[in-house]
Design a binder for these strands. Structure first.
Length: 210
DNA sequence: ACATTAAGTGATT
DNA sequence: AATCACTTAATGT
């Protein structure tokens, strides 16, 4: 656990904080496609993502979902801070996109570390910033981009986060993430393939050009 | 061989 | 861009 933590976080946290994280945090390895937190659930810990990828999805009461953003190594779910402080219910759903290793920090440490460690404070503020920007990008995409552009952006983002140009997914799953229908996704994917940007297979899409 | 699931397509709104 | 209705292709039992 120590080495894995150091891998990424040794540059962002001071040594004493790293020690504390190791002491109070719980390390977990989570398989692909596991539900981390569902709508209405409460957070009982702050996740620090060591590696892997997590998908954050918003869902309305009809069950329509829309992808907000992906988390990767070094990220944490900023929303979890808010949920953590206010102990409010989660308004998002988080699932692992691939096998991930995560350290969970107990909620009580949140306040304490904010005062105690400058690097922790920076980390929290920074995370908020990064997430906010990601969110804005998503809003822009939603508001101004056509479906075909959104689809292509989605594929590129996903390939980047997973560090894998070969995406194992179905048209239907993509449609859920973008909140559209499978038929539309199929047609647009076909178009992208003709343009030479991607290659299609059953249960798989290869991104050729970024 | 049959059922199930994923993907492709024309027509309509 | 969504929906319907249907076809074709791939995969599991």
């Amino acid at each position: 656990m120590r080495e894995k933590l150091n891998d990424y976080y040794s540059v962002v946290f001071e040594p004493e904080l790293l020690e504390e994280i190791i002491k109070v945090g719980t390390f977990k390895k989570i398989k692909e496609n596991e539900l981390l937190i569902d709508l209405g659930g409460t957070m009982n810990a702050i996740p620090l993502l060591l590696n892997g990828a997590i998908k954050i999805v918003r869902e309305d009461k009809n069950g329509d979902e829309i992808l907000l953003y992906f988390l990767e190594r070094g990220d944490t779910c900023a929303i979890s801070f808010a949920s953590g402080f206010a102990k409010v219910k989660s308004r998002i759903r988080a699932t692992t996109e691939k096998e991930s290793e995560i350290i969970f920090i107990p909620l009580e440490k949140l306040d304490e570390w904010l005062i105690k460690y400058k690097s922790w404070r920076n980390f929290v503020i920074d995370s908020y910033n990064v997430r906010m920007n990601e969110m804005m990008e998503t809003i822009d995409a939603l508001a101004f981009m056509k479906m075909d552009q959104r689809l292509y952006k989605y594929l590129c983002d996903k390939a980047l986060i997973l560090r894998e140009t070969s995406l194992n997914t179905t048209h239907q799953e993509i449609a859920y993430d973008l909140n559209t229908s499978r038929v539309v996704v199929s047609r647009l994917l076909k178009k992208l393939e003709v343009e030479g940007k991607i290659k299609l297979f059953r249960n798989r899409v290869d991104v050729l050009v970024f």
